[in-house]
Amino acid sequence: PEAADLRALARHLYEAYLKYFPLTKAKARAILSGKNGDNAPFVIHDMKSLMEGEQFINCRQIPIQEHQPQTLSAGLGGVTGVHLGPDCGILGMTNISEQGSADALELRFFHSCQSRSAEGVREVTEFAKSIPGFINLDLNDQVTLLKYGVIEVLIIMMAPLMNKDGTLISYGQIFMTREFLKSLRKPFCQMMEPKFEFSVKFNTLELDDSDMALFLAVIILSGDRPGLLNVKPIEQLQETVLHSLELQLKLNHPDSVQLFAKLLQKMTDLRQIVTDHVHLIQLLKKTEVDMCLHPLLQEIMKDL
């Protein structure tokens, strides 16, 4: 295809990305580096701050009077967990009833994460439908591509929200520290650490939102997902998006050696992370009697 067509495809996917994903990398990095004016995020770094911030999780707008007293100053030079000092987490709790309420709080937080993930699946679905040719594929194949691709896409979308110390949640209004997530009871404490490890490495590639849009489309259009009925048209679509991505990276990152190859390599790592994630969710279903998995996530993870 002509270079002009490939550039038009890149622009189209970037516009769809901006339309369907509420928190871009540009916005997230501004928040994380403290360049977001006075709107520093609420920081959750222990059970007490989780309790205080719980009502705002998944709110698009935190009321300013509730929000301000708990935020880190943007003047500290960005959001990190380093300034917060030692984090006791739940380890300092000895009282049985306190432990019980901490357990319930962790479970409620996990359910909030599920709701946001389900909403994320909706966003990714809308983005997928905007990929030229996607909605003309066999409907069963559209379902298969989303079933197998959506968690990979959500993990990639998480990377810009993370730094080595924590992650933005709640549309960028809350920063949750990595240490706090590690202090949760098993297996909750095991869920995010692999994503942090992946994200810190992925972020060194320094993709911007327009690169991300193309990369997400490449992931969605994977012709090797199990059970696909008509692989050829999917591979053809992916081939075009791959050409567009390669050209985009050459133009956007002229000095980054082998960026295209490095990025494609990440797709292999992603598959392992998703496999491990699904195993943890299956483990949770066994160990947490009160846990109910969101029906949309159940659909996706069943027989994955």
Partner: peptide
Amino acid sequence: LKEKHKILHQLLQNSTSPVDL
């Protein structure tokens, strides 16, 4: 496959109307 993935299918089919998630 569509039968086993009703919500996903619904998300794919309904372009504008929000699905109750």
